[in-house]
Structures are given as structure tokens and as C-alpha cells.
Design a protein around this nucleic acid. Sequence first.
RNA 1: GGGCGACUAGCUCAGUUGGUUAGAGCGCUCCCCUCACACGGGAGAGGUCAAAGGUUCAAGUCCUUUGUCGCCCACCA
Length: 905
Amino acid sequence: MAREIAKAYEPQRIEPRWAEYWAKEELFKAHPNAPGPVFSIVIPPPNVTGSLHIGHMLEHTEIDILTRWHRMRGYNTLFLPGTDHAGISTQRVVVKQLMDQGIDYHKLGREEFEKRVWAWKAEAGGQITEQMKSIGESCDWSRERFTLSPEMSRVVRKVFVQLYNEGFIYRETRLVNWCPVCLTVLSDLEVNHEERQGHLWHIRYPVAGTTEYLVVATTRPETMLGDTAVAVHPEDERYKHLVGKNVLLPLMNREIPIIADAMVDREFGTGAVKITPAHDANDFEVGKRHGLAEIDVMTDDGHMSKAAGAYAGQDRFEARKKIVEDLKAQGLLEKVTDHAHAIGICERSKTIVEPRISTQWFCRMKELAEPAIKAVREYEPGKENTTQIVPDNRRQEFLNWLDNIRDWTISRQLWWGHRIPAWYCGDCEHIVVAEEAPAKCPKCGSKKLTQDPDVLDTWFSSGLWPFSTLGWPEDTADFRTYYPTSLMITGYDILFFWVARMTMLGIHFTGKVPFRAVYLHSLVRTGSGEKMSKSKGTGLDPVVLNQQYGTDAMRFCLASMAAPGTDIVLSDDRLAGARNFANKIWNAARFLFMNLEKFEQGGASLEELASPEVRTGAPYKFEGSVPLVDQWLYSRLTITIKTVNEALKNYRFHEAAQNVYQFFWGDFCDWYIEWVKPELQSVDRERAVVAWKNLFAAFNDALRLLHPFMPFLTEELWHQLPQTSGAKSISLDQFPEPRNGWADGRIIDAVNIFSQIQDVITALRNIRAEMKLDPKKRVPAEFWSTAQLVRNRVQAESDAISRLAFLGALNISPRPLEQAGGAMRSTAEFDVRIAYSDVVDLEAEKIRLKKEMEGLRKAVASKESQLGNETFRSRAPEKIIRGLEATLAEQRVELQKIVERLGQL
RNA sequence: GGGCGACUAGCUCAGUUGGUUAGAGCGCUCCCCUCACACGGGAGAGGUCAAAGGUUCAAGUCCUUUGUCGCCCACCA
């Protein structure tokens, strides 16, 4: 069995094959009736027109790690993929594209436009899913969903109609957030508030029939054209005499009343407020209270309307300038002051949002929020129908938002989306809300019905995602088995947009929480701390990085930094580190294969290695006992497996990844492989077989342990090793289990004893390095310890010690030989010395020892004083006191040794 | 205006319920291309845990204040 293996890991050569294999073989197809506990997760559907960005990469890596981990542990696993039609974003993209071709989408007409978007979807919509396949996400592609498919549409209509009939959904005219670029209403969440440096213009309004002025202050002078009153506080002495009189609205020459309203803040500005009910939320309320007219002075695209008189047709900001100039010319501008204030910005177009009066569809939320609040607030592990939110501070945010929830504006003036299932009768003005288009008006029988032109907010359909994708409202096997889903992993930036809505709608329609847990992952930031963004050019393209470093390296890198609650800063250094790790694994495998060949040439059968025992048993014994190094490695493996399981359970990806890294590189490669090398070559056949079996079994475990993090590399190597599981893929093989036969005490002993041997070797290497000995020069060394047990251990491992510390001979004794000089190292339990006095730099040695002595003196002194403290002795736990005493005793011995040594020098 | 988070080695970050001399990766210094790997091996240096108080036998860890930075929410013209 000759193996051709490249010296360095080349992910580009490995990945495409397995990506294709996984997607084609339907290895990850879910079977609702399969045995085992259930793990189900639906993907946060990325925008259908989008491409994979770094945030997806992190999110999908986390999802895929947990999915593969559960699958390998025997769970009935579903990872459902899909995409979102993303109303505004997609429409904007296509509109812009048409514009570039010189086409005005309005002229195209709705039907044709929709066709164009579907065509664009057909062309570009596959990109992100193709990318997901190419990076090997272990989804069930047979269950892929799209939020605007006919099936999803039926669900949306059913939900809308029910909410309408239940009185949650209603239609109303009120002041809404309007984007003059997107030409649609926006929900509160789609408006971001930004602090901007603006001005406060103080304008004189002449009081009718007097020579007096009433000065009002405003940040948006252009809205004055729509003023229908000026308000002052009812108890404001300055203005009491004016209430009931009129002012003459400058520029418009219209008389408007001076009214009194308690909403006015006497301290702010001049204490007199212009009231523009059609353009300000507060004013709208005041207008309602006082029965004022609402004059809309703007058009839907941000220009001044006919109602703006002479300013009609001007852009809103042009008009502002012009109005200020005109006021100034007329001597009506008293002053202008600087004023910082928050303004609403459209999340998509980044333009300034206009408050505007409009008739829209809304959804009453208060009542829907209550069960969601309960489900999250009352979460306890294992408690039915509650949802855990991780990290915990997000849970507080979530609850605060729901506690103060306001009605949701669900209609959008777009063409791309779920059309609102409401029809208006042309004869009697009756509104019909129904799942299917009605033939005639149920009230007057008229056939002149027209459907509402608007569509629903994108988040309305994605809010149904966890159950609409599983076949609801039908009682499907998928729905029964996989709902509620086990987990939702998404970004905290859509906690309110999406997670909150899913929770509310899920509970309302299915009676159950849509997911048992929500893990809100970090954002990936640039080196300077900004959120990575393609539009700003600060984003890293994961596709490019995957090419450059390998998908496994990218995944591992992200995982090793993905801690709950902290954002991630990705760097080339870090990615290179992960790539190096992949290379390390690859080369460890090369080493194994090389030896495997020798092993086979020696006449051994693969069956010997591929026995089931390899997969599940304790390490193989040699001459009736397990070698120390094997005991140690399997102990470390067991500890690592336990730690990884615990870490992944708590979304501590970084901890899991770092432990795996440390085990594989630090323990398995640096120590174990180096240690067993000679045994693998041993002429003693039994010895070689045992060494090989243990090496193989440990490596096999390590591969499976690594697989959720680095699927490609591990799949490739797994297929090259003799296998016994019969699985078609490592991803369907078992995740390694802690070896239960090993009591904790035994594991601790193995680790402690071995680490003492490691200390001996490190001490000897340290001496060599400091003495600048030729690395190829074998030198004699001396080891002494008063403890028989320690001497025996070192004696037992003296071959390995000599080899790894490059010794010529190792003399083990209870006390030092009189005549030997050279450099030495001491611990409380043993001393080692390399007798090579001619190259010892005595001064350097003295400095090192003095430094060490200082450190120890401090440590000893602080422990002595602490142990001498009666309060400490009476209050501290026994365990702590014992530990302290033991360490103190050791340090005293070490200190003593150093003092003596210094005396000799 | 409310609320939240961060501040630990030159850099990027771990450090779960307070407990013995605070860790990792990268970078840095020295040695080594030893037949798996120079994307490597070995040995090191490097931190008064942002500042000041407090609680405690014991504080990187808990409390208060301050500073710097970041985020979320919010209809004061």
C-alpha cells in the first residue's frame, strides 16, 4: 500500500473532492424517524442575492461544528439550509442594475419587474448556497427552503389572515418613518439614530394684529411651511397673554393659532414650538389633541409638494437653504445656534428618514410579546417551553426590548415580497382579508376588487422560518420530530428584527418556543475595531481566505477565537497559525503512514490494527502492563475529550479549539510521537505492534475529535487509515468518548508522573541550551533524588530520557557524585547535572540562580506569613491550607538547594 | 438621556463560581534544515492585570468612583 503524500498540506487539492462528496451522497440527509435524541437547527437564511461574507463564515462554522459534533455523537440531526428573499435589499440591487441599463423600473411595471427579480434570483441566487457547499457545510440540501417560495407564501397568507381575524393586524393612518430613497415606509428598527451636528434656527413669527414676535426654534426650517399652530406651555408666564391669538406664518402668509400644551418644555429653545402635525411625531399628537390640520409639504421622494407654495418641487435640503435665506432677507431669522441632535437614518439607503403621514398595516405586539417574555425570563435548564439566550447580557437586552415593544409596521411599498392578502372593494370600500383572492365582495357582491399593492416586511416571513420550513401548518414528520428546533445561532444585530419576532410568532402559532436556545455569536471586526463591511471595503473575503489558507484553517481560526460575548479581530498571523496547525496534522499523518508501510512490510496484517478494540478500548498493554507514555497520552486524550464536550455544550468554541490544539500539537506530536519513535522501529515484534496500535488508536481518536473543527483534512486522512466503523465518512463515525474504565485517580497519576519525567528532560535540555552544547554531542548526565520512587520512575524511562535530552549516559543515584562539576538544575524532588565544567559560564549561572532565589524567597516569605496568620488558618478551607503548606515545603527545599549551590560557586 | 461591555506580555486575546509563583498564539532572543513537518524542533526573555479607594484571612476575579474606548436603546422642537 504505497501512499503518495505531499510534504505540506494543500487544502485546494483536498477540499473540492470532499465538498462534492458530502453534497452528493446525501450523507447529511435527515430522517425524522431515525433513532437517537434530536438535534435540529435551521440556518439564519442569508440574503438570496448575497455572497458569503466573513460574518456568515463565523456563523456557519459555529453551526457546522455543533451539527457535526452532535451527529457524531449519535443524534438524529437536521441542519436545514435556505435563503431569504430580502425585500428592500434585493429590490434595491435590481433597481440599481436596471438603472445602470437606463431602465426606470416604474415604467417596467410591477409584473415585468417581478419577472426581472426572479430572473436575477435564478442567476445570482445560487451563489451563496454554492459557496456553502464548497466550504463543506453539512446541510441537508434536500430540504433547502426559500422565504418567497409558493409554500412559504401559503404559510405567510395563513398567518396574516389569522392575525387579522384575531385583531392583531390592523390598518391605520399615522405618522410613520418614510425613506424618500427606498420610497417605502420603514419599521422603527430599520431606522438608525445618528448623532449629527446641526443647527437650531430661531425664527420670528409675527403675532397677528400686534408688532410683537413670537420666536420659535427649529432644527428643520423647511417643515415650517406645514405649520398649523405654535405651542407654548400653559403656565409659561412669558407667553400667557398670547395664547388664543394668531401668528402669521412667515413665507406662507397664513394665520395659525397659538395654543397651550403641556408637552412643551419651557427650558428648551425659546419655549415656543412650531407645530407641524404632518412632519413630526410629537406635533402629530399635539395636532390630534387640538384638532389641527395636517399639511403634508413634501412628496414621497423628498421634494417639496404643492402645499409648499413657492418652494414646490425643490429638494428638501435645497428648500431648507432657500427658506433660511428668505427668512434672513425678511429679517425674520433671529439667530442660528449649533445644535447636536439625533436624526433617523434609513438602514438600507443611509438617507435621512422623513416622518410622514401615511396609511399602513400594523401589527399589535404587546400581547404577542408576553408569552415570549415569559419563555425567556423563566428559562431554566431542562424547563419545557422556555428559551435560553446566550450570552446572558443579551437576554436582558431582549427582555427590555420586549417589555417596551411597540406596534410593528408590516407593510412596505415594494414590489418584491409577499403581497398583502387584502382586497379593497371598488364599490363599497369594504376590505377583504383572505388567504386566496376572493371572487367578489362578500358585502356588496361587487367584482371590482383590487389587491393591496404593498408587500410585507421581509422579517414577517422570516419570523415564521423555524416552523414554516418544517412543513407547518401540516402535521408533518419533520415538524413533529424537529420542532422546536434545538438551537438558533445568529448575530446579535438581528436580535430584535428576527429572533424576537420568531419567538413571538412561533409561540403564537405553534404553542411552543421555536428554539430551545439562542446563541448570539460575535461580530468579526477589522484590526481597527470596526465592524467588517464590504461597502466600506474593510471586509475580508472568506472565499479568498479559504483559498489562501484552506477552509479548515479558516474554520479553526474562527473557532479558536469565538468566545461568547466578545467580538473577533481576525488577522493574517492568526490565520497562518491555524494553517500551520492543519499542516502539523497532515505531517503527523505522514509519519504514521510511513510507519504503517514499514509495519506492513514486516508482515503484519492491517486487521491487527483495525480491530474494533482500537476504537473503544483502553490502550494496549505491553508485557501485561500499559507503558507510562501510553497511560499518559490516553489520560490526556480523555481529559481533552471531556473538556471539549463541556466547552461545546456551553458555546465555548475557543476553549474547545484550544484544547484540541494543545492535545494534538503539544501532547501528541511534541511528546508522544517523539517518545514512541524507537519503539515503532523495535526489532521486538510484540513491542512494535503495541506501540503501533496505541499510536494508531490515539490518532484515530484525535482525527474524530478534530473533525467538527476541520472537516476536510480529517475526512481525507480518515479515509487513508484502515477503518473499522463501516461508515462512509468520518462525519458519520463516532465522536471519541472518554474512557470510562479509567478512574480519575489513575488519570491524574499518569499525568503527574509523566509530567515529572517531562520536567527532568526539560531541565536537561535547558542546561544544554544554556551551556551552548553542540546539539549533536551526547553528554553524560547525573540524576539524583532521595526518593526511591522517583529514582525508580526515572530509571524505568531512562532510555527515552537519554534520547530526548541527547545524553551519552544517565547516572541515577540517591546523592550527587563528589567529584562532578558542571551545571545543574534542581526541584524539590530531584537534581540533575550535566558534568561538563569546562563550558559552564559561572557568572551567568550565578545570575540565573540569584534571580531564582529572589523569586523563591518572596514566595516562601508570603506563604510563611499567610500560614502564620491565625485568622487565615481558622477561615480558609482545609484544602487551601494543605496545598499551601505542601508548596511551601517544596519551595523551602528548592530554596535551600539554591543557597547551597550558590555557596559552592 | 438611559443601559451594556471592554481595558491582562510588544500585538491579538483566554483566565467559568475570589484560593498556592496569571496563560495561549503571534512577535522577540539564542541554538538546530535530527530521516513527519522550517507552515518545523529545542531553550528562553517579557505582565505592579487602566487608576484610586473599599469588602475579605485571601482580589485579575466582588463593590464604589474616575479615565479611555466600543456597542445597544431613546419622538425633546
